[in-house]
């Protein structure tokens, strides 16, 4: 077996402020082969975006303490110097954000921004870089690309802007694309266009994608593997099909049953009670226990270990057997 493109072991991120410290990401491990799509699913405060930013060391160094190991394409990301890190960013890894308006520079045209990136990383000539920019806009299927090269970000619609952002991210043929809720701000009819495009580009280029989302539907659309995060920990991990159709962890089961998908109108949706915990004051043991209907004293006493629950899949729960029947009911047919 060849070494995976991305191998994360025991990643932990602690944020320190003057008054308190909080563990935003706690002992997260996963790996991604080249050409695979991993979706990190979680609600607000689950640590999914922090995990993603930690992969590129985009967190404020003073306040965020990162430990563990991040192996990326043979590099140990956490021990790289600034220069090597910058070479890695944009070259091997690049990132797509939720709101392209804040990630694109408003005073330069789309074409200039892409060409500039190509020149900086590839040392190409101006003409070559511009040709590459046009090629990229065609690749992300922006209509009338010659005209859009000269457009400023604010002149594009939301969907086109996100495509331009993807073109920028792909400009140096990264091996790994990090996508942080790139379709959340888009309308449904546009979201599906961008998802289909990303999936197709991923297959054509053969790059790996780590895709952060809160939407199970988006994950089902794009993921090969999923990692479900809750309060900074991965609670369930495995192939997308298995996890989404046959969830094992009570949280995943609850997420699926509370997602509105054609439930009968005269009955309550099976919601998860309560709200997500405060990361600065996590309970000992399983963080989901206060909201979990299967929780017993053991869950509250100690953190349950990660258990294998099938080929290539695992869950961090002490009550897997008890949750099993509910899982069958929650899964979409």
């Amino acid at each position: 077996m060849t070494a995976p493109l991305l191998d994360v072991r025991g990643l932990t991120v602690r944020f320190h402020s003057r008054r308190s410290s909080a563990t935003a990401v706690d002992d997260v491990s996963f790996s991604l082969a080249a050409g695979e799509v991993l979706c990190i699913i979680g609600e607000s405060g689950s640590g999914k975006s922090v995990t993603m930013r930690a992969l590129m060391r985009l967190l404020p160094e003073r306040r965020a303490e990162i430990s563990g190991r991040i192996g990326l394409d043979g590099n140990d990301v956490l021990s790289l110097g600034d220069r090597a890190l910058n070479a890695l960013r944009g070259d091997t890894v690049s990132m797509v954000f939720q709101e392209p308006m804040t990630a694109l520079d408003p005073v330069f045209t789309i074409g200039d921004q892409i060409a500039e990136t190509v020149r900086r990383h590839r040392g190409a000539s101006r003409a070559e870089a511009e040709a590459r920019a046009l090629e990229l806009l065609k690749l992300v299927r922006i209509p009338s690309p010659e005209r859009r090269l000269r457009a400023y970000p604010h002149e594009l619609s939301g969907g086109l802007r996100q495509r331009a952002m993807i073109a920028l991210a792909l400009s140096c043929q990264p091996k790994l694309l990090l996508a942080d809720e790139p379709t959340t701000a888009l309308d449904a009819t546009v979201q599906i266009q961008v998802l289909v495009l990303l999936k197709r580009l991923q297959a054509e280029i053969g790059m790996g994608i780590v895709f952060v989302t809160h939407d199970l539907g988006v994950a089902a659309q794009i993921a090969d593997k999923v990692a479900v995060m809750y309060a900074g920990r991965i609670v369930e991990y495995g192939p997308a099909r298995d996890v989404l159709l046959d969830p094992r962890h009570p949280y995943t089961i609850g997420m699926l049953s509370s997602t509105v998908r054609g439930q009968p109108r005269d009955r309550d949706i099976e919601a998860i009670p309560g709200s997500p915990p405060d990361l600065a004051a996590l309970p000992p043991g399983c963080a989901f226990a206060p909201r979990c209907r299967f929780a017993v004293d053991a869950c509250r006493a100690a953190l349950p270990p990660v258990e294998e629950v099938g080929p290539g899949r695992s869950a961090r729960c002490a009550r897997l057997a008890a949750a099993r029947p509910a899982a069958a009911a929650a899964a979409p047919a």
Binding site: A188, T189, Q191, I192, L195, D215, L216, G217, V218, A219, A220, Q221, A223, A240, R241, L244, L245, L256, T259, R261, P332
Partner: peptide, 8 residues
């Protein structure tokens, strides 16, 4: 355009 939670 609505997304299903079933990868299939």
């Amino acid at each position: 355009s609505q997304l299903s939670t079933d990868p299939a």
